[in-house]
Amino acid sequence: MRAVILRACHACPPQDLGAVKLNKVLFYLDMLSYAYDRKPVTGATYRKRPNGPTSDQLLFALRDMARAGDIEIKEVDFHGYIKKEYAPLVEEPKGVLNEEELSLLNDVIDFVCHQNTARSISEYSHSLPWEMAEMGGEIPYRSAMLLFPMEPTPEAFEISEQGLAEVASSRSSTSPVALPLLRDFRSRILREAGQA
């Protein structure tokens, strides 16, 4: 978790990474990793909260990292609300995360921190895994597959219609394959058995 937090802090300016976004980085990293490889990166426990999934372990990890001098945590005014900002004070550890984990983490950071606001990512995170849990209840890793769309998109229908058209045109341009009738097959078997 320390390596993930430091990577997120190095990848985002402090004003772009508050508690809401940091929780979503952890959540999506672990859930997507579980969906792809059946194992989360951090193994944190996630709970349903009003602003989306949160990690049980994040506050403890941040406290320990601040005490160790790894990060600086500031409380700033953000439109009348108190927002926490995180600034890294040490380099990212090398070799803790493998290449696949780093690649996924970079994609998650880009999506959560650079393509969304805290409000939009909070609303986005109210997906099926979040909806299925009781408020304050654990969001199980086995629900990770529910993050992916369940309904076919219009593009999927277009592609399937194109495929059907290709199959239909190839059928009309070739002669049908002759298949023997079952009774003919049985008759042949009986004839050959009588000759033996």
Rank of each mutant, 00 (worst) to 15 (best):
M1D: 00
R2G: 01
I5Q: 02
I5W: 02
R7G: 07
A11R: 14
P13I: 14
G18N: 12
K24L: 14
Y34I: 04
Y34G: 00
Y34P: 02
A35R: 00
D37T: 09
V41T: 12
V41L: 10
A44W: 11
A44L: 05
K48W: 13
R49T: 12
N51H: 12
N51F: 15
G52D: 06
T54Y: 14
S55M: 04
S55F: 12
L59K: 08
F60N: 07
R63G: 01
R63P: 06
D64A: 10
G69M: 14
D70K: 07
I71Q: 08
I73W: 10
I73T: 10
E75F: 08
V76L: 15
G80Y: 07
G80C: 08
Y81V: 10
Y86G: 10
L89P: 04
V90I: 13
V90M: 05
E92Q: 02
E92V: 11
N98V: 14
N98E: 03
E99I: 12
S103F: 15
L104F: 06
L105D: 06
L105Q: 09
D107T: 09
D110E: 15
F111Y: 10
V112M: 11
H114K: 10
N116Q: 01
N116C: 04
N116F: 13
T117I: 09
A118V: 00
S120L: 02
S120K: 06
Y124P: 00
S125W: 04
S127P: 07
L128F: 08
P129E: 10
G136R: 09
G137L: 14
I139P: 09
Y141I: 10
Y141W: 08
S143M: 09
P149H: 01
M150I: 04
A156T: 07
F157N: 01
E158N: 05
S160F: 08
E161P: 07
V167A: 08
S172D: 14
S173R: 02
T174D: 00
S175M: 12
L179G: 00
F185D: 04
R188D: 08
R188G: 08
I189Q: 12
R191D: 15
R191K: 15
Q195S: 14
